[in-house]
């Protein structure tokens, strides 16, 4: 369960995120969309404790990120668009290091299953420099999922993946959701979000403009001006419909 109340992040005096509140329950996948500079990545980085929020509350699986950061961080995983790896550790060593940090005692078995699922089982001795971009992304995901997080944040998870990789990533996200994780995906690929997400939150200039289940939102905008898909909804909600035309 991800609960966010009045989240605000200021860069000096510039509000990157303003008074944002929402909740994502277990098994739900929320799509976080918005134009460039809307505050999507800042929101995800605040939620995962990478940068401190200026105001507001973030609770993950009941733990408050501000008052109890260590326990909260045990429950979450964040995957940035650019996989951050240590270039001198092999795939196997990345897993061993992550396991020690998160104290995952049976990491070898979990790691083996994850690597098989991500089709990397034969790459355990390779260094990041020897992996393709997609493979690096998969390694970052394997490390992040090793401790079975209850909240997962994806920032542009499909960047650099081939069509098969994209399919597998979508399946993997849905699998984690079915297993009970609360997931937030930030992406500009609206068709992907339409396929994967149960909920959508549209941000503009750091503020929430639309929030709800995918069905509700599509229906709401369909009622206003005929059949709508998420792309249409996005353009209308962000006021960019004219520019798009």
């Amino acid at each position: 369960m991800i609960e966010v109340e009045s989240l605000t992040k200021l860069y000096d005096k510039f509000p990157a995120v303003s008074d944002l509140s929402f909740a994502v329950r277990p098994c739900e996948v929320m799509g976080l969309v918005g134009p460039n500079g809307a505050g999507k990545t800042t929101t995800l980085r605040c939620l995962s404790g990478i940068i401190p929020a200026t105001r507001g509350t973030v609770r993950i699986a009941g733990e408050d990120l501000t008052t109890n950061p260590v326990a909260t961080k045990r429950q979450l995983a964040f995957f940035s668009d650019e996989p951050r790896l240590f270039d001198y550790l092999t795939v196997q060593q990345h897993l061993a290091f992550t396991a020690r940090i998160y104290q995952v005692s049976d990491y070898q078995e979990i790691g083996r299953c994850l690597l098989e699922e991500l089709e990397m089982a034969d790459k355990i001795e390779l260094l990041p420099g020897e992996l393709s971009r997609g493979m690096k992304q998969k390694l970052a995901i394997a490390c992040g999922l090793l401790h079975s997080p209850k909240a997962i944040f994806f920032d542009e998870p499909l960047t650099g993946l081939d069509p098969l990789g994209i399919r597998r990533m979508k399946d993997s996200i849905l699998k984690r959701a079915r297993e009970g994780a609360a997931i937030i995906i930030s992406s500009h690929l609206l068709h992907l979000l339409e396929e994967v997400c149960s909920h959508v939150l549209i941000l503009k200039n750091g503020r929430k403009v639309v929030d709800g289940t995918m069905g509700e939102i599509l229906q709401k905008f369909s009622e206003q001006s005929g059949g709508a898909n998420l792309e249409e909804v996005f353009f209308r909600a962000t006021g960019e419909a004219k520019e798009a035309k």
Binding site: F97, Q103, V104, G129
Partner: peptide, 23 residues
């Protein structure tokens, strides 16, 4: 450069349990 970095032998076996700083 990519692909040229050599795999390095770990100094000791890292167990999953224990003081995290050792990682």
């Amino acid at each position: 450069t990519a692909g040229k970095q050599k795999k390095k032998r770990p100094p000791f076996a890292l167990r999953p349990a224990g003081i995290p700083a050792v990682a």
